[in-house]
Amino acid sequence: MSNTNNVKLASELLEKDQEKRSFNLSILTENKSGLLNAVTIIFTRRKINIESINVSETEVEGVSRYTIVIESTREQAEKVVKRIRKVIDVFWAFVYENDEIFYQEIALYKVPTRAFLNGDNAEHLVRNNGARILVIEEDFIIIEKTGHQHETRDLLEKLKPYGVLEFVRSGRIAMSKSTRRTDLFLQELHNHH
């Protein structure tokens, strides 16, 4: 590669580093009270908004996984991740771009039951959008859909004419494209030190 190409590549990379986009932080921690605060104040201090957060138990007993989505530059995301790793009850933190993970969100929609009684459009919507009916009550129906944000939002737009009573969407959950096993990774982390 010529020198000018190298220079160009370097400057493109630098530009990419400075560009704000979605980053997914995946953090393995002890399951302890107060830890959520210890993690989130790291974002507060840097005035980074948390777009979405999910905390749940992993397949390893006592170990939790935080999935946090932020809008930031690569540089800032990496600095934040390094700082999070310093929190005493954090095992490790990863940073992923959207194309390095598989991710999903779950959305629930509450619509009036009568919307389904007038013709079959609403039912079609559910079928054609990969959603399902979670519960049918006398007054309302709850529809569930799993997908990316734009997909769950699309369905919301389509349901609006039927009178959406309530809409809720979960934080993002994500899995990396690696094949590492959580328990073995934690073991390795421990042995390394």
Binding site: T29, E30, I88, D89, V90, F91, H190, H192, H193
Partner: peptide, 10 residues
């Protein structure tokens, strides 16, 4: 020792 804390890096 604390399992999440490794104060002296290798």
């Amino acid at each position: 020792e604390i399992r999440t804390y490794h104060p002296i890096p290798v």
